[in-house]
Write a protein that binds this DNA or RNA. Sequence first.
DNA 1: GATGAATGAGAGTTCATTCAT
DNA 2: AATGAATGAACTCTCATTCAT
Lengths: 214, 214, 214, 214
Amino acid sequence: MSTSSEKRSPVRTKVREAVSEAILDAAEQVALENGIEAATAAAIAQRAGVAVGTLYNYFPDRDGILAALFKTRRAAIVPALDVAADETKALPFEERLRAYVRRLLEVFDDNASFLRLAVRADGEGASIKGRDKTLMTQVLHHISQIMREGASRKLFPLTRVEPYARMLQGSLKGMVLWRVEEGVSVADDADLVVDTFLRGVSTTSPGKPHGVGA
Amino acid sequence: MSTSSEKRSPVRTKVREAVSEAILDAAEQVALENGIEAATAAAIAQRAGVAVGTLYNYFPDRDGILAALFKTRRAAIVPALDVAADETKALPFEERLRAYVRRLLEVFDDNASFLRLAVRADGEGASIKGRDKTLMTQVLHHISQIMREGASRKLFPLTRVEPYARMLQGSLKGMVLWRVEEGVSVADDADLVVDTFLRGVSTTSPGKPHGVGA
Amino acid sequence: MSTSSEKRSPVRTKVREAVSEAILDAAEQVALENGIEAATAAAIAQRAGVAVGTLYNYFPDRDGILAALFKTRRAAIVPALDVAADETKALPFEERLRAYVRRLLEVFDDNASFLRLAVRADGEGASIKGRDKTLMTQVLHHISQIMREGASRKLFPLTRVEPYARMLQGSLKGMVLWRVEEGVSVADDADLVVDTFLRGVSTTSPGKPHGVGA
Amino acid sequence: MSTSSEKRSPVRTKVREAVSEAILDAAEQVALENGIEAATAAAIAQRAGVAVGTLYNYFPDRDGILAALFKTRRAAIVPALDVAADETKALPFEERLRAYVRRLLEVFDDNASFLRLAVRADGEGASIKGRDKTLMTQVLHHISQIMREGASRKLFPLTRVEPYARMLQGSLKGMVLWRVEEGVSVADDADLVVDTFLRGVSTTSPGKPHGVGA
DNA sequence: GATGAATGAGAGTTCATTCAT
DNA sequence: AATGAATGAACTCTCATTCAT
């Protein structure tokens, strides 16, 4: 009825992506405002400005929307984290860890709105079927790699890799959760977390900008 | 005109509590297996071996069941934690912290099945109305108190109390979540967590049973 | 366990009736306060001070209670109406009608609390199964008899019996409903209703106490 | 982006109204056959030939359906009655009353099926929330106005206005209920009711077509 | 006989999904 | 492709009725 047969693909593809993204945005907003279970098909459609039926032209089902939401959002974050992990690979243990955490928290700051959703959903297991790899799982993976290097440098035994990774991931999660709920940047806490993790509470020189002295 | 108050109570009361507990157990199991939202009235009733209507003889509504579940389970744990916090109050900072964490993880071990639920639900905000004080919130509170003492002893500035509390709570959560999902005791990790938190990764003497040296 | 084998019947019978009546009273109160559908088994039992199960020792089911309620209450009224109809049989048409209506409204005044229920339920057809003969049906019957006499005295054609009976019954219902909802006696309106019915609006001597003159 | 407001409305609107009306018709039928409380969502849906969910696309809840039923049905009647009351305002008392009643019963004949419901429900107080102005209440209002005029013309004292209105309304209700349950027209009874009300039983010239002579 | 907890059919309502337009 | 009304399974909760104590 409009531009009918000349150059379908490129335009159509663009439109598809635009609508698709609009739907995911809508889902994110609604889920953020009223909780994931409030992100009903009707609510998402209304927020996106499309009809319910349209949702099913773009996604297989409601869970597909939420899965795609998490997937795309993660897809915007995970590569950045992978890059961070990659770029810092060459550094010695401490610097590597510090650099990674710094980048990690910066990335988190850049995606704060999604973060609340992700941290919240982390552990809800059943709510979104097919969500296998969480964001924090990827972070855990990166940290584990770094820890493995620490162990291979004899800084601590290999058996510590796993528990250390869990602890550090937990610390980060705690900080992020806290900051994000207060609507505050978390990147500034990077050194504090790393310093505490590496050298503990007592030795972290108080007063001085942390991570500088030592 | 009616045999009213002499000897019916004790038996009836016992039955009431048994059924009530059976319902809560059922709710816990179902929630644990398939997520909280899978704990429908029908599912709980079936698992408990009672009729749906029976649920409503014991609890006002579905949320009432979940609220009671969390309440009773917490009621079995929180006092133990409070005692732990209280008993260790007299100790100097480090020993106090170590003792508290040890007790904390012991208590957690004793309540592993509920723990998975609690850690999972922590942060789900809206799911259970009226759940004001979470278990982990109480833990955070205790840790904060201990941290405040650490600050008053000039071990670190007062501004560190909050972030340290979050980090340690996060570390503990990470460890508990990990161990509990593997069905393993977590109490043995107490010293490792505390040592790492106090003195950091590198100084924790590797090889030796942690918490002994230094 | 108490008085076991000597004179069971008389005592037991008395108790049975007392409990039975208590249940009906309870049902009446609850129905009056919150509507018939609010007269649940639980509500009736609680109000009557007995257990739910006891209701079923006295009545076959819930509808049986309501049916019995209406039946007993009617049983207290209908005979009085029958007597009124009987006693006035000998009187000439007008006096007979006047006397009957007077007695009718007096009886109604004596049973005001039940009346509200009866008038309300009159016409609800399905709500109480097996309630065939309503109070107002009996009244209609009496009025019809009187009307038939009026017709046989050539005061009006036989075809008027039915419509006249309906109209007068309607007038009475209207008055009763009105007065009863205001909590006011209705007996004083007897002459007004009859005079209006017999001679119409305009001829009823205004000012004078009605029913005296003419 | 969407074909939004040109030509969908008229068709859709028609369908919407058709379905809406079908639902109300279904509700009316079911309520008429088995009583209002039998008009369950399932029963209405089945009778209307739609799914349960569809009801909720048209009405907020079950009470909303019943409320709408009464509202629309009344909306078809009350204006006609208001017109009748209005048009007859200029006439002298007796003619006015006669004309109003005639029109009233004609309107009733045209809405016989709903009438049974309305007369039945009149007085059930609590059954349908938000039903403030019943049909019969409106009739009472009109009659009262006419009666007030009668009083102002000194045909009877002002204190008679209320009771007369109740009586006449009652008479009409009685007639309508009777005729309607027999499936017979009631309009023909207009003069009989008015004549009886105005001049009473005895003076109504028997044999002659009523309302002609005198 | 009295008791009241247990029962489960059935009511109202929601919402993911489908499909005719 | 977009639309949104229709669908009905599934959910929460009620309440008449039963029955072991």
